[in-house]
Structures are given as structure tokens and as C-alpha cells.
Amino acid sequence: MMMKKILIIEDDPAVSDYLKTFFEDNGYNAFTAMTAQGGYDLAKQEHPDLITLDIELPDEWGPRFYRKLAADKSLKNTPVIVISGLSGNKYAITKAVASLSKPFDRDELLKIVKETIG
């Protein structure tokens, strides 16, 4: 069976590396982008099964990235999990499948990922 792909959009390398390792250890194929634009390009190229998205990115804010994603027919139904340290982040992207605050519980994250993409 093909491994499910997860795109991690996160500008903090520590969090990003942690997530990548965590997803890979759990049998997913994970790749990362540091910026919204980089994330969008990667999403176009790879068509991930799921995206984890930070709200505050160096080039653009998460909701603006999501708007671009939602406007693309081939990407609009990609589930997004918001992972951010900002207060009120769960209201930032209302169509996100979940919103987690940093520091997040990795078991909870894995549970959400499994429920969403198996």
C-alpha cells in the first residue's frame, strides 16, 4: 500500500523536524515547507493527503494560504490541521479538521491524523 503523504508547513525548524520524524515513525511519508508559498508549491506537486499548517508564517498568514488552497480544485478538499501557538487559532480556519495549540499532545495529533486519513 502506498504510504499516505503529509505536508508540514511550519517555519520553526525544531517543530518541523519533530513533526516529520513523528509522522515518519508512524508510517507516513512526511515532507516540510518553511513558507506558505513553498507549502503551496509542494502541495501542487505532491498532492498530500493531509496538511499541518502553522498560522504565523514568514511570508503569509495561514488563513491566506488556506484561501489559496481552497481556490484550487485539485487541493481544496485536502484536510488541514492547524498547529499554532497563537490564541484564538481554532477560529482562524473554520474548515480545518482540527486546531491544536503549541505545545500539542502528540497522541492527540496522531489520533486526529488517523481518524482523518487512516
Binding site: 498560522i55 504565523e56 503569509e60 498568514w61 495561514g62 488563513p63 491566506r64 497563537l86 490564541s87 484564538g88 487559532n89 477560529y91 482562524a92
Partner: peptide, 8 residues
């Protein structure tokens, strides 16, 4: 709302 400030 805080969510209103995440656009830039």
C-alpha cells in the same frame, strides 16, 4: 476576535 488578526 483574535482570529480577525491572522490575515496580514
Amino acid at each position: 476576535r483574535p482570529a480577525g488578526s491572522f490575515w496580514g
